[in-house]
Design a binder for these strands. Structure first.
Lengths: 212, 212
DNA sequence: GACAACATACATACAAGAATGTATTTTTAA
DNA sequence: TTAAAAATACATTCTTGTATGTATGTTGTC
């Protein structure tokens, strides 16, 4: 059933969309290509035409999620902002609130944080995953570097620890939210959670010395 | 090949130990009982004698890990301590440092946090998992309740948010550590990470009014 | 205290289902 | 007409659960 190029591209996206559903429903390991094909209203033949195997589908989804996310963090670094730490706080809060409002993103994140493990078949994908994580950490770190250059952070603050702390805290919140949405209502709690965390770092401009 | 009761118990523990290894190597979903049996130097017959199926093995491991953990948190509540929040901070720090020093516990945690998903076959286990998590949250919360009763927390602090925040932060730290031990060196960083987090809550005894 | 009678602790063998990858067709756009 | 975009068919591989075999500990009984 030869289709036009646009049809083919749509089929491919249908397969990816179906994969998100099936993966997050059954878990990546237990999801079969037959199930994905059915959910996309095609046969396994179509799936194998567009993708080499399950791993390639997974990697494609991973990219589709991560690219806009890292872009978002980097964008903030371009903009001028009086207080980089406050900016980072806003960014984190907004990311959480937007997550709460975007079911698509939510499903994809559930998949990558809860429904997959990087053992065995996905081990090769782990390298890419780590690469992405490093990008994220570096981007976070640059917010703190900016703040330090502006003398806006307490003298005793350690940017490496701060970066790690933010990253861990965010990950923990997202996980708890995805797993137990009834307990963690991001819509209401995101701002307060972030506020508590950043309280230490704001306001008390220890040494408001201009750069240099 | 009837063995004595002690032999049988040892076999059972061997199977559980092997299961930890195989599960964390291949992931729970992809691990086969044949692989576990081989790692334990028995046949699948022995495995099926001691456990109904893979899920029962998983549940047994889960219990073996969680029971001492929750016990540990509850113990702290029995002891008298001048500052419950400082006590909680110590507890968290210690838990992290001990984790770094206990390869067995580490492997088990990797399994439950990174190598399994609760879709499909493990869905029934999720209820138990949630039950355990609730116990943990309540225990954490009781530390803050104590502190509030003693007037040792800032007036504007919200115990629900605090509990959530601690829980998320801990989870994030443990995850990042297990996944990237090279980046997060708990031995060196645990105290500082915890210190940063609790800084807000200590020292500034807003209203040191005795109970009532 | 010896010896049936039974239960336990496994090992082995087998049948059935599911999933994968590939080979082969079919249809139709270019 | 030829080659892309699938559908279909097939062989193979894994796993699982269960059924069955069997050797040995254990227990009650005389």
């Amino acid at each position: 059933m030869r289709r036009t190029k646009e049809d083919a591209e749509k089929t491919k996206q249908d397969i990816l969309d179906a994969a998100v559903d099936i993966f997050s429903e059954k878990g990546v390991a237990k999801a079969s290509l037959e199930q994905i094909a059915q959910a996309a209203n095609v046969t396994r033949g179509a799936v194998y035409w567009h993708f080499k195997n399950k791993i390639e589908i997974f990697d494609a989804l991973h990219e589709r999620l991560h690219t806009p996310f890292i872009q978002r963090i980097l964008e903030g670094l371009e903009v001028e902002h009086p207080d980089p730490v406050a900016q980072l706080q806003e960014l984190c809060t907004n990311l959480l609130i937007e997550l709460d409002q975007d079911p698509q993103k939510k499903k994809a994140l559930i998949l990558f944080l809860l429904k997959c493990d990087y053992s065995g078949e996905l081990e090769a994908s782990k390298a890419q995953y780590l690469e992405n994580k490093m990008q994220k950490l570096q981007a976070f770190s640059r917010y703190f570097d900016k703040a330090i250059a502006q003398g806006r952070l307490p003298a005793d603050s350690n940017p490496r620890i701060l970066t790690m702390a933010v990253s861990c805290y965010l990950r923990g919140i997202v996980l708890e939210y995805l797993e137990f949405p009834k307990q963690v209502r991001l819509k209401d709690d995101a701002a307060e959670l972030m506020n508590f965390f950043f309280k230490n770092l704001l306001g008390s401009h220890h040494s408001p010395v201009p750069t240099q």
